[in-house]
Structures are given as structure tokens and as C-alpha cells.
Amino acid sequence: MAETQSPVSDEARGLVRAGQAAMRVGDYEAARTAFERAAALEPNNQEARDGLREAQRRLQQAQRPAAEEQVEYCYRHPNVETALHCTACGRPICARCSTPAAVGQLCPECRRGRRPINYQVAPLDLIKGALVGLVVATLVTALVGFIGAFLGLFLFLLIFAIGPAAAEIIVRSVEWATGNKRGRPIQITVGTAMVLGGVLAYLFAPVNPLAVLLFLLVGVSTAVARLR
């Protein structure tokens, strides 16, 4: 039996949407009220908490006398004046450092802290991915290149038929070693490992160079797409 949505959750989401709409038209008092009610219904609702913080900040800013306005500078670029603030931590940030959030914007540090765990890649993850990717890519490329040496005109059929599946073996091995890490650093690491594996297979195994080259073209593009 499908679970029904909690009426409290539905009401909280509706209040968050109302608060976001009020923020867009500049009605910060109404936005604060909506976000306060949403946060009271769901204390762990991050959008409601961020929206309430941003609405309160803008209300305080609007109430501050013009004479008391102070020039603020981006905490990452001390020479750049800004009126933007991170919704999460409240620090001033410039346009280059801001990333739009559901309400307001986030600084680079808070944005990284909110990334899913499998996109938080540590140096050790890259080392594991590189080593496992290199070993498996060398073996898989050597096998494909060896088989390709006997196929002649059927070489292209081999590459496009089993190339993606062979690349999937490399990707699964890297996922096992890194704990399913994703993102550009992993993509670059695995792509480089596959190219180096192809070079090693060409140098030390009786392979068809064209088969190795075609497999790397298909395999690297497949691996990069899978690890996005």
C-alpha cells in the first residue's frame, strides 16, 4: 500500500513556496511569517530555515538607517564590494562566489557542505580510483585488443557491441573501490587511468592498436557519462 503524504509536510511545503514567492516580490514581512510557520511545522526543513534567515536579514537591512549602512566586502575577495550574503552562514559574498539556492544564495563552502556524499571526493578516493581503474582498464583493454587482432572487418562490430559493457566493468570496479564516488575529479581520474591502461596494453600485450584506440574512444566516453 502506498504511503500517504503527511498533511503537515504538505502544509509546510506550501508555506515555503508562499515565502519564496513573497521574497521574489519584496514582501519580506509576509515571507518571514510564512517561513516561521513552515519551520514550526517542520523544524528540520532546511528551505524554511534558510528562507527565514534570509527574510530576517533583509528586514533588518531595510530598517537600518541609510547613514548607518556599511560597505561590505566578499570574504573570499576582500577588494570586491558586495551587498550579497550567503543564506546559510550570513557572510558577504560577491556574484562570482554565489550559487543560487531555493532562497537567496550560497557561498562556495556552504555549497560544498550540501553536496551529496558521493560527490564529496577526498584525495584518497582519487588514489583508489586511479589504481583500480588503471589495473582493470589495462586488463580489459588488453583482452579487447587481443580479440580484435583476430577479427579483421568485424573489429568495429566488436567495439560497438561490447565496448560499453567492457567500460562498465571498469566503472563498477572504481565504484567498488571509492564507495560510488561521482563528479568531475573522478571522471578525469578514471578517464586518465583508462588511457594509461590502453598504452600499457599496447606496449606489453599482443593487441590490435586500432582495436585499442577504438575501445578507448568508446570506453572513456561511456565511463565519463556514467560517473557524472
Results as ranks from 00 to 15, higher is better:
G219E: 03
Y119V: 04
A30I: 06
E68L: 14
V144T: 08
L216D: 00
V144S: 04
G104T: 03
D50S: 06
F35D: 01
A62M: 12
G179K: 12
R226M: 05
L203I: 09
T192M: 09
V80A: 12
G191D: 01
N45V: 01
T192I: 08
A166P: 07
A40P: 04
A66S: 10
Y202F: 08
L124R: 12
A161R: 02
L59I: 15
A137L: 08
A83K: 12
R228W: 03
T141M: 06
G219S: 02
P43F: 09
R37Y: 04
R91S: 14
R226C: 05
R182I: 05
F35M: 09
A40I: 09
D27G: 03
P123L: 08
R57A: 15
V212F: 02
G129Y: 04
T87C: 11
A95W: 06
T178A: 06
Y28E: 13
V144R: 08
A38V: 09
D27M: 10
I186M: 15
F146A: 10
V195A: 08
G163L: 01
E36Y: 04
A223L: 04
V136R: 04
A223N: 03
S221V: 00
D27K: 08
P7C: 01
A193V: 02
G219K: 00
A62T: 13
V199H: 01
V190S: 00
D27N: 10
E72N: 11
D50W: 14
Q56E: 13
L196D: 03
P123N: 01
C89G: 12
I159E: 07
E69Q: 13
A67G: 14
C74H: 11
V8Q: 10
N208M: 04
N118T: 09
L153G: 15
E175R: 14
P206E: 14
M194I: 00
L15N: 10
V174K: 11
N118Q: 14
R58C: 11
A2G: 02
P108R: 00
G14Y: 13
F156N: 03
T189E: 02
F150N: 06
A39Q: 13
G129F: 09
E175Q: 15
T33Q: 15
T178I: 07
D27T: 08
R64T: 15
R91H: 14
R24Q: 12
Q56C: 05
A225Q: 08
I127M: 13
R49E: 05
L200F: 08
A88F: 06
V195E: 00
V174P: 12
L155Q: 02
